[in-house]
Design a protein around this nucleic acid. Structure first.
Lengths: 149, 149
DNA sequence: CATTTCATTTGCATTTTGCAACTATTATTT
DNA sequence: AAATAATAGTTGCAAAATGCAAATGAAATG
C-alpha cells in the first residue's frame, strides 16, 4: 500500500482551507473553531457543554469560554437542563442557525463544484468509498474516537 | 446528492484527532502545528520560509516564530540561499527527520489498521476514490488551493 | 447526612496569533 | 549608477486562545 497518510494529509488540509475561508456569513465574521462549534451543536441532539467539547477534542474550560463568546455574538443559547441542574444544553439561536446554514451552503456549493468534475459513476463510487472509510474508522478504537460517526 | 459536507467534516475531524494524538516521538513532545510543519518541510523540495508558511496557510510572521521554536528544539535547520540572500531554505535535522519518520509510522500504522477492516477490493476502490477526489479538488480554483496536490 | 463524584465556570499564567513596522537584499526605473 | 520599488524574513506589541488548578453548585453514593 502506497503512502496513504499523504492522501489524507492533503485531503484534510484542503478541506481545512475550505472551512477557514467559508467562515463569514451575513455580515458576521466567524473563526474556524467557532464554525466547527456551530456545526457540532447543530448536528447533535440537545448536547451539553461537555458533549460538544469532547466531540471537538477541546479542553472544557477553553470551550466554556468559546461558548461565552458565541453567546455574546447571539449565535448560541444555553438552557438549564431541568433533569440535572448541573448541565446546560446548547442550541443555536435563530441567527446562529442562519449563519450555520449559510456556511453549510457555501461549503456544499464548493463540494458540488468538486464533484462536477466526475461522472455519475465516479461520484457514486467516491461517496460509497468515503462512507466505507468512515465505517472502517469507527471500528478502530486505537485512537481518534469521536462522538458521532 | 446527500450531505457530503458531513462526510468530510467527520472524516477530517477523525484524521485531525489522529494527528493530534500522534504527536510525541522519541521523548520529544510535538504540537499539532509543529507536526504539520515537519511534514511539510519533509515533503517539499528545499522550501523557503515563505513557501512552507503559504502551504500551511499560516501568517508568515507566526510561522517565522514557529520555525524558531523548532530550531531551538533542534528539529529544523535554516540555510541561507546562496542565489538570493533574502531567502532561507528550511530542512529537517537528523533528529527532525527521526521525529517526522516516527510520527509518519504511527499514523500509517493506524491507517493500516483502518484499512484492515476492508477486503482487497474495497481497499483498492477507496484508495482510487481518494485519488480521484484529490484530482477533482485540484481542478477547482474556487478556493482552498495548496502548493502540492 | 457526610462524602464523593460530576458539570460547569473563573483565576491566572503561558502560548499563539497577526498586524504594523523594521532590516536586509534583489529588481526595476530612469 | 543612483533612486525607487519590491521581496523575504524578522521583531514589537497587543489581542486572543489555551489549559491547569481551584472554586461553585448540584447529583449520587455510602
Amino acid at each position: 500500500m502506497e503512502n496513504v497518510r499523504e492522501l489524507f494529509q492533503i485531503l484534510t488540509r484542503r478541506f481545512g482551507f475550505l472551512n477557514k475561508n467559508c467562515c463569514s456569513a451575513g455580515g458576521v465574521d466567524i473563526s474556524l473553531v467557532q464554525s466547527q462549534i456551530l456545526y457540532e451543536i447543530d448536528h447533535q441532539h440537545n448536547p451539553s457543554v461537555q458533549q460538544v467539547a469532547e466531540a471537538l477534542g477541546t479542553d472544557i474550560t477553553t470551550f466554556s469560554r468559546q461558548v461565552q463568546s458565541l453567546m455574546k455574538m447571539n449565535l448560541v443559547q444555553k438552557t438549564a437542563d431541568p433533569d440535572d441542574r448541573r448541565v446546560y444544553v446548547l442550541s443555536l439561536t435563530t441567527e446562529g442557525k442562519f449563519v450555520a446554514a449559510t456556511i453549510d451552503k457555501q461549503i456544499n456549493a464548493y463540494l458540488d463544484e468538486v464533484f462536477s468534475h466526475m461522472n455519475e459513476f465516479e461520484r457514486e463510487t467516491v461517496l460509497r468509498s468515503l462512507r466505507l472509510l468512515m465505517g472502517a474508522m469507527s471500528k478502530t478504537r486505537l485512537c481518534c474516537s469521536t462522538q458521532d460517526g
